[in-house]
Design a protein around this nucleic acid. Structure first.
Lengths: 184, 184
DNA sequence: CGTTAATTCGAGGCAACCCTCGACTTACGC
DNA sequence: GCGTAAGTCGAGGGTTGCCTCGAATTAACG
């Protein structure tokens, strides 16, 4: 039962776009918790209009992050193409956290449990799938500590998210130390 | 020029104690950001009375945490008494984070830059002093990766603080992996 | 006891953020 | 052009937390 909503009026479409652009910028700059009023202000639109188009913060997240999360697939594929199982896994971590470091909103999305939009959830699942394969490969090759699991990666992600928030310049070093501890 | 303040009236002393007890509990349970109103409520005292005794949140912190931080000295001494340089450093980390995991307030104090009370600051400095010695020893013995520094420990502390907040049961495992990466 | 200074109380003002609703405005089809 | 549905606006009500201040209370001392 698809409810075919009629096309937006011209001004409405314009405002929707401005809101989306503003939200994209502000999420990236300030993180997921930026006040909705700020988004409205940057979009030069009233708060009422914001709520008309995006009744909840989640609606913004659902519109904005699926594309962002597509990058996860890219780095996943890239890592799967790498021959050396250790290099594949370690490179994946580097790329993943580099991504997070570039976008505070993405950092939040990946580090919290919150994001409920199905598109976002499925993107995360795909990411976890890639990571799972990389872990299995590395385990099979005996280059990763034998008890490592995807749960540890989730923990690491939240930890690194915090490092990125506190001191954006240090995550790479932190990761390199942690990664040493990962080798079998 | 020491301003000798006269002793508190009996009821005032009682209320002060109740406030301190309530704050100690709530900081430990909920972290440093617990609303001051909650502290007043648990102490069964009005919000006005709370502000009379502790005009700022920092005043609570300054009264409560110096004793808590004394534990830092204890584990520092304990580690310095340990013969094996690696065991000394690794044990210190274990003890430190076990402490943090037991008290959300302490976790916050150690992981944020905020705490400005001189007593708190100096306790942190003493802790850093111990840690510095442990690091130097381990470096001299060649058991710690050669480029490790106290800055890395600060980063680790913030990262683990986050792990403790998110999933209190996992910090030990996380640390054990990281610590592997630390060996020379 | 009575005095009085110290203490307590909590209503209420301020600020940030959330969200709603009805009056006004405007795009668009005719 | 005009009528109308669609869209916009922003004042304002709700919440949570911070903090203040004057009226009411009370400990403590003679």
């Amino acid at each position: 039962m698809v409810t075919a909503s009629r096309p937006l009026r011209a001004d409405a479409a314009r405002n929707r776009d401005k809101l989306l652009a503003a939200a994209t910028e502000l999420f990236a700059e300030r993180g997921l918790d930026v006040p909705l009023e700020h988004i409205a202000r940057r979009a030069e639109v009233s708060i009422g209009t914001l709520y008309k188009h995006f009744p909840t913060r989640e609606d913004f997240v659902a519109q904005i992050f699926p594309q962002r999360l597509a990058a996860l697939d890219v780095i996943g594929e890239k890592a799967l193409a790498e021959q050396d199982p250790w290099q594949a896994f370690a490179g994946y971590l580097e790329d993943l956290y580099a991504l997070q470091a570039e976008d505070r909103g993405l950092n939040d999305v990946l580090a919290r449990d919150l994001p409920n939009a199905p598109e976002v959830v499925s993107a995360c699942h795909r990411g976890a799938g890639h990571a799972g394969i990389l872990i299995d490969r590395a385990l099979a090759a005996g280059v990763l500590r034998a008890d490592y699991s995807i749960t540890d990666l989730a923990t690491l992600t939240r930890a690194i998210a915090q490092v990125i928030r506190d001191s954006p310049g240090e995550w790479r070093r932190f990761l390199s130390i942690y990664a040493e501890g990962l080798r079998a």
